[in-house]
């Protein structure tokens, strides 16, 4: 019966028409819709994150006074060592500034630090992203580098009103130019496959043949600074394997990344100062 057959096909026809309409819909409308849906779900993310913070707060409150006193004492020691480091850094910065003035070099202080809590981590086989609790309101631009105490976290991929999405260096979609510490030749670093229950890994390519790395003598991989996105010298990971590449001119290898990347709770976004000057900035806490 033709009418019955049509009835059976109608749901699929309806979906097909909707999909066809979607495909010819202008990109601007889609972008608007995407932003709208993100902002619609953003409060859920932020609320969950705040609840988690609250949970952590109460968990910390449950510690005994003795534990807190011990932790405070440890913290005081760490602070003391940091105080020394800060003083040294200040002196070095002053020296650098003096030399820059003397040699008429442009200033190396090209970034403002914006610390942000991690609202959500989203690690699949295809992407590795985190959502942070700061966004356009804090002057965070797309493409800004993000770092943590262990080195590079990744690059800001999307910026929304109160949140931003950072694509991690563990993600196969992130590639940047690194150098082996002490060397100046750029190497291609790209996030690799991230097997379950194992530390994240990346891959290096275009590595000069004379660089030898193995699990017993790993090489530290740092940002090159050539790409114009990341400042030089930030840790990416350690090259633990290097083998002759298929072109016979370079080596390819594996980079072991910091395991803490899988449990980040706070990161720092390096906001380029020239972008910062143009953006509406709210003072960071």
């Amino acid at each position: 019966m033709p009418s019955r057959r049509f009835d059976q096909a109608r749901p699929f026809l309806t979906l097909g028409i909707l999909v066809a309409g979607w495909l010819i819909m202008p990109g601007a409308v889609k972008s608007f819709l995407r932003a709208s849906f993100f902002e619609l779900t953003a409060p859920v993310t932020l609320a969950a994150s705040k609840v988690r913070d609250l949970q952590d707060f109460w968990a910390l409150r449950s510690h005994s006074k003795t534990e807190l006193i011990e932790a405070g004492r440890d913290q005081a020691r760490i602070n003391a060592s940091y105080e020394v480091a800060v003083q040294q850094t200040t002196e070095l910065k002053a020296e650098i500034a003096r030399l820059e003035t003397l040699l008429r070099l442009p200033s190396r202080d090209q970034y403002r630090l914006e610390h942000a809590r991690v609202a959500r981590r989203d690690f699949s086989a295809w992407w590795q992203r985190i959502v942070i609790r700061k966004g356009r309101d804090h002057g965070i631009p797309v493409g800004a580098p993000a770092v943590f105490s262990g080195g590079v976290v990744g690059r800001v991929a999307e910026v929304h009103a109160m949140t931003a999405v950072v694509e991690l260096i563990t993600s196969p979609g992130v590639r940047l130019a690194g150098v082996v510490e002490g060397d100046s030749r750029p190497i291609s670093f790209q996030g690799g496959s991230n097997p379950a229950f194992a530390p994240p890994t990346g891959i290096v390519e275009l590595m000069p043949l004379d660089i030898i790395a193995s699990p017993t003598s790993p090489k530290r991989l740092v940002t090159s600074g050539y790409g114009g996105v990341f400042p030089p010298g930030l840790t990416l990971g350690t090259i633990v394997r290097a083998e002759l590449g298929s072109d016979g001119l370079h080596k390819s290898g594996e980079v072991r990344l910091d395991e803490r990347l899988g449990s980040l709770t706070e990161i720092t976004v390096l906001v380029p100062l020239e972008v910062d000057a143009a953006a509406p900035v709210r003072s960071s806490p």
Binding site: L176, A177, P186
Partner: peptide
């Protein structure tokens, strides 16, 4: 080297334009 490093970092990974070596 500085040019290809810039391209490595700034060209999207899935872009049809890619850095090649010979």
């Amino acid at each position: 080297p500085a040019d290809y490093a810039r391209l490595l970092e700034r060209l999207p990974v899935n872009s049809p334009a890619q850095v090649y070596t010979s």
